[in-house]
Design a protein around this nucleic acid. Structure first.
Length: 551
DNA sequence: CTAGGGTTAG
């Protein structure tokens, strides 16, 4: 009993750890207890997930705690993502003057990283008296995983300068941070380093490498790395398939998938998600259903990611009912699930469904809307005849009610909403007041509104703005022709529904003609039609389109 | 101890 009181530390509910104290030179008090540390008991508590009891045991053992006990405890804290309990272990080390070896300090970095306490992880890292390749890699990977690519790369540079040799773990993780405008250049540098250190054919390094090339749009180089791999597994195969799919090479992606399957590759839910991306790009409903059936038969657990891609596939293939059925059946949804469903409704101009679903999302209050959510809702409102509602939601963003910072695309939607509501002057003033430089797309949307509402004054001004912003479009014409072209553009404003052949923006003309033709056909045949263009869907019944002639 | 592929939008 005496021993217990000697070494029992009454912890505050919220432990504030003084990180710097862990490195102070300090010797542990010598235990006079004759009891050996009860490590097996602590271990069994941890293995059974009883962290609270294990912490109590730690307190009882006091300074008799050794490496093994700390290791077991930290492992379980990491498994359970138990930050409070992990902090207690950390505090215990400090209070009992235990100087943890590099290994345990690295475990603490991992703990803080997994619990999304990146700052604490970095502090731990900075205060290490010595580091090895594992601790460097753990910290680099912490940044990579949390999306801090430049910090990861910075640290990689520091690591090299410190004279620590990277290993296959380091390369695999640092390559995932070679993204963005400078990514390819850096990735190539890392690649040559990998060749020098003979890690090129390592399966983890190789798949990370090919993924880096694929994300940089260098699919042939990615293919080259893939083919040079001495062995293949699910991840490397999925990486190359998704590389093709993400670059829009949908047929190649599917062809590769078929070939690799015949060669005996195994698939998992990530593979199917990538294949579904390719299929939705091709609007290949039948194949999509086959994948869906296959997934159901193979009894994969219900992975949110896979269900998200099924929602997207069905909506892009025009089967919104299937999308909704999957959406409704999901035990758990992420923001992407909501976004995919909202986007589906939005592209069909189903404004009411968009607003209803968005309201459901806010009621449930489990998942926070993000920038894409609002984009889907606003564009759904403008394509679906819910202008007022859409504007209301846009202005809620400015009020801070939505925890989403408006970006230029949201402003574009607002212009769309105002234009569609016929408030052309308001839209014009709105563009002038925006905190962003208006893009060609924004002027273009106002021009479209001017066309629908036959407003020549604003339309003329907007047309000139467009020619200024997009000189590459106008650059194809000689000076005289630009005035020619402008006239035709304004002619378009008053164009009859049958359409006047105007050559201002090519796809605008094609779109009007095709659209009218489709409407004409639907009226004559009395059939419903579904068209998919670059941005949205048109569902045409009896000569009337779901887009309300506004796109 | 540390590592690779994935779903919405653009």
């Amino acid at each position: 009993m005496l021993r217990k009181f000697n070494w029992f530390f009454p912890y505050a509910k919220h432990v504030v750890v003084s990180f710097s104290s862990i490195n102070k030179p300090c010797t542990r008090q010598i235990s006079l207890s004759s009891f050996p540390p009860n490590s097996p008991y602590l271990k069994s508590l941890c293995y059974n997930g009883h962290l609270k009891e294990a912490l109590l045991e730690m307190a009882l053992q006091g300074p008799e705690m050794r490496f093994e006990g700390y290791d077991t405890l930290l492992n379980e804290c990491i498994n359970q993502r138990a930050i409070r309990e992990g902090q207690r272990v950390h505090t215990h080390m400090i209070k009992t003057c235990y100087l943890p070896p590099v290994y345990l300090r690295t475990r603490l970095i991992v703990l803080y990283c997994k619990c999304e306490c990146l700052g604490d992880a970095r502090q731990m890292f900075d205060e290490m008296p010595e580091r090895n390749v594992v601790s460097w890699t753990a910290m680099i990977s912490a940044y990579s995983q949390r999306g801090y690519a430049s910090e990861a790369l910075n640290l990689f540079g520091q690591m090299l300068r410190s004279g620590t040799e990277p290993n296959e773990f380091t390369f695999a993780t640092v390559l995932t941070s070679c993204i963005g405008s400078n990514g390819l250049k850096l990735g190539r540098q890392v690649h040559s380093f990998i060749i020098k250190t003979s890690f090129e054919s390592h399966i983890y390094v190789g798949s990370s490498l090919l993924d880096m090339y694929a994300k940089a749009g260098r699919i042939h180089e990615a293919q080259g790395v893939f083919e040079s791999l001495p062995e293949r597994d699910v991840v490397s195969c999925t990486a190359i398939i998704s590389g093709y799919a993400q670059l829009g090479h949908d047929e190649e992606a599917l062809e590769l998938f078929r070939r690799l399957q015949m060669e005996g590759m195994s698939s998992n839910y990530v593979t199917y998600a990538s294949v579904l991306t390719a299929l939705s790009g091709l609007s290949a409903l039948d194949h999509g259903k086959q994948v869906h059936n296959h997934v159901l038969r193979s009894e994969l657990p219900s992975y949110v990611v896979l269900q998200n891609s099924l929602i997207d596939m069905y909506s892009k293939c025009g089967s919104l009912n299937y999308s909704r059925r999957i959406f409704d059946s999901m035990p758990e949804r992420t923001v992407i699930s909501w976004n995919a469903m909202l986007m589906g409704y939005s592209k069909y101009g189903m404004g009411r469904e968009v607003v209803e679903l968005f309201e459901l999302m806010r009621e449930e209050n489990k998942v926070k809307p993000d920038s894409v959510t609002i984009l889907a809702v606003l564009s759904g409102c403008s394509h679906g005849g819910m202008e007022e509602k859409g504007l209301e939601i846009f202005f809620e963003m400015g009020n801070g009610k939505l925890s989403v910072e408006p970006v230029i695309e949201h402003y574009g939607c607002a212009v769309d909403l105002l234009g569609r509501a016929g408030q052309l002057e308001e839209a014009f003033k709105f563009i002038k007041k925006m905190p962003f430089e208006p893009t060609a797309a924004i002027w273009g949307s106002l021009l479209g509104a001017c066309r629908v509402h036959s407003n020549i004054d604003i339309g003329e001004f907007v047309g000139r703005q467009l020619l200024e912003i997009e000189p590459e479009n106008a650059g194809n014409y000689e000076d005289g022709k630009i005035l020619e072209t402008l006239a035709l553009a304004f002619g378009l404003i008053n164009a009859t529904p049958k359409g006047v052949p105007v050559r201002v923006i090519k796809n605008l003309r094609i779109c009007v003609d095709c659209h009218n033709f489709a409407k004409f056909v639907s009226k004559v045949n009395g059939r419903e039609e579904c068209l998919r263009d670059k941005n949205q869907f048109h569902r045409i019944v009896g000569g009337i389109c779901s887009c309300g002639d506004y796109w």
